[in-house]
Design a protein around this nucleic acid. Structure first.
Lengths: 213, 213
DNA sequence: CCCTTGCTAGTCAAACTTGACTACTGCGCC
DNA sequence: GGCGCAGTAGTCAAGTTTGACTAGCAAGGG
């Protein structure tokens, strides 16, 4: 899975209705441009593509209120909501060594109930365990370890990442069990997006390509 | 950086002269199809693109000796060797949260001298340290932590990954200092590619898309 | 003998990503 | 009073990745 669709759907959903630039700002607010490939081009492409596929509904909108070209606003359709939750559940459950996918899942997990989040993370732990034993059995040569030479370091690195990842997941589950955060159906949700016109307190000031000079 | 170029250059270089299918098999031997995007299409594309850019020299070759369409053999040019070492050094030095890049670097680090590998890993540790303090200072709100809500879990996950990654790097450095593995200029190198016709002892038997049914 | 299966070796279109570029508005300021 | 700068909102071509598809040869079975 590509993480960009999950992020974009999550952002649009939290706004109800959003245009591309708003989504772009939210993702920057989440730091997604640092830990994923969420760049302007990818975001606009994902919006258009998902609109074409019926996951988003595009409203053609009059020229912007704040300067700049006319903008298109998007809303998540029923199909899009389905796709969103499928991607979100997958991001928390599957172990595929891609940290960006988990990061996105963490940022959006509160759209699920607390119980479901815990259940998915439990499944994640099991997936890590299965992956680990498959890899260690498979890549341990019959003539004993060490036959792999330095190539074995690659495997050791994966296994180490899996182990520390599992440990971290367990700690997260404890925090969630301990009542941390506000999940779906638990009252006023944490506001994870920027209101129109609100400035990003974590703005880097960095200019990314895509900004005019 | 994309990891595919590094892997392909490394594989071709170890053969001296190789065709696409051979590279594809080597990368499978290294397990690269599991921890990176090394799929047939990407490999052939990288070969062609790098040939166009002068990093590889393409020999048009007569029909295959073992069935199948005619094949093209490639050799790394001087420019390609330069690019290879640049990518290799970067893969070991830079910390960018992409585990596939480091994995490739580990598999190819023995093309460097032992001292240089250690020096690059030392630089890596420093890079992780700098990254860590930049992130923690930046994303710790003035009103104390906790203001970020569950979004803070993303940051915690990155920082945890950085810390365990640094710890693992230190352990690797100890192994290298302790004399593990055979680096450049230390005699008979470890054979990391498959000879023509040799079968992959770690073949998964899995079929990847790109294989005929 | 011919037909399927399997291996060798690749091509190709569609989707995605990247980074550069465009275009419009308002504001300050010289 | 017009010039440039900063911010808004996006487009676009070039490059990359993906997964499906093609095609040749060999071995074995009925």
């Amino acid at each position: 899975m590509s993480v960009i669709r999950l992020l974009v759907l999550g952002a649009v959903r939290q706004h109800g209705r959003a245009h591309g630039y708003q989504v772009r700002n939210d993702l920057e607010y989440w730091g997604a441009h640092e830990w994923s490939n969420a760049k302007p081009g990818s975001i606009y492409h994902a919006l258009k593509q998902m609109a074409k596929e019926g996951l988003l509904h595009a409203h053609e909108i009059a020229p912007s209120t704040a300067g700049g070209p006319p903008r298109t606003e998007y809303e998540v359709t029923e199909q899009g909501t389905e796709a969103y939750f499928r991607l979100l559940r997958e991001s928390l459950t599957s172990y595929d060594q891609k940290p960006d996918v988990l990061s996105a899942g963490l940022g959006l997990m509160v759209d699920l109930s607390r119980e479901e989040a815990l259940e998915l993370l439990e499944r994640r732990l099991r997936a890590i365990g299965e992956w680990r034993s498959a890899v260690t059995e498979y890549y341990t040569p019959a003539d004993g370890p060490g036959q792999l030479g330095h190539i074995g370091e690659i495997m050791d690195f994966w296994v180490h990442s899996a182990d520390t990842g599992a440990e971290w997941t367990r700690a997260l589950m404890e925090r969630i069990k301990g009542g941390a955060y506000t999940f779906a159906g638990e009252g006023e949700p944490f506001v994870g997006v920027l209101a129109d016109g609100e400035e990003n307190p974590y703005a880097t000031g960095e200019r990314h390509p895509g900004d005019a000079r």
